[in-house]
Nucleic acid binder design. Sequence first.
DNA 1: AGGTTGACAAAGG
DNA 2: GCCTTTGCCAACC
Length: 120
Amino acid sequence: MFPNPRFHQEVYETVKRIPRGKVATYGQIAKIVGRCTPRMVGYALAALPHGMAVPWHRVINHRGEISPRARGDGALRQRRLLEKEGVRFDRKGRVNLKKFRWAPETDLGGRDSRVWEIME
DNA sequence: AGGTTGACAAAGG
DNA sequence: GCCTTTGCCAACC
């Protein structure tokens, strides 16, 4: 089976709430889960078995870039998946978080994040 | 037991 | 906005 720590499952459930075409940061997920740090979120996602229905690719770092993997080609696959959902990257490979960040509190029925931007 | 290693982040310069 | 600490904490030597 996959790793057992309680927080893993909570991380997965939270990540599942990120809608298509939006992204969240590791810190954001950690804060929602509670008693959890950004590093632990990355750790949990790295332990995610293949084929599990969790949109792991929608989690990026707070600078808007895809966190490089120590091994494997996961980062490239992640970028492809996001682009397929309409998430745009700039020349330096960064996402505009102002535009694409998931805003849970104002996510009322899958609408866009206009409210969030106005409040900022 | 002690040290290293991450799919990280905030603060200070 | 970039670079450098510093804090973080489970997993794995």
